[in-house]
């Protein structure tokens, strides 16, 4: 499953896109735990969100192989 990274998360992943093994029907929370284990730098962020198909996702939302998944660190536009 491909995960898009932006801002500081690109630095944490050392990449703009990573590929993770995440089984179908995993929740957003499952994905976050998995990512935090693999990339402890995520725990040092003030907070971060997961976006699924261009929408902010909630902890219990289910993700699938074909979804566009992105890690959204605290935003700072404007």
């Amino acid at each position: 499953m491909k995960i898009l990274a932006f801002g500081i998360v690109k630095d944490i992943f050392s990449n703009a896109v990573i590929d993770v093994d995440c089984k179908n029907d995993s929740s957003v929370d499952d994905l976050k735990h998995m990512l935090e284990k693999k990339y402890p730098g995520l725990n040092e962020l003030g907070s971060y969100m997961i976006a699924v198909n261009n929408e902010y996702a909630s902890a219990g939302d289910i993700i699938n192989e074909n979804d566009e998944i992105a890690v959204i660190p605290p935003v700072s536009g404007g």
Binding site: F6, G7, I8, D11, E44, L45, G46, A51, Y56, A70, I72, P73, P74, V75, S76, G77, G78
Partner: peptide, 26 residues
């Protein structure tokens, strides 16, 4: 503008003479 700054996924990196930092990340 207030809502944009809170939720729109855009990020800025500040570059100083002695380093750089992603704003609001930590």
């Amino acid at each position: 503008i207030d809502t944009l700054k809170q939720i729109v996924p855009i990020w800025k990196k500040e570059v100083f003479e002695d380093g750089e930092v992603w704003v609001a990340a930590h």
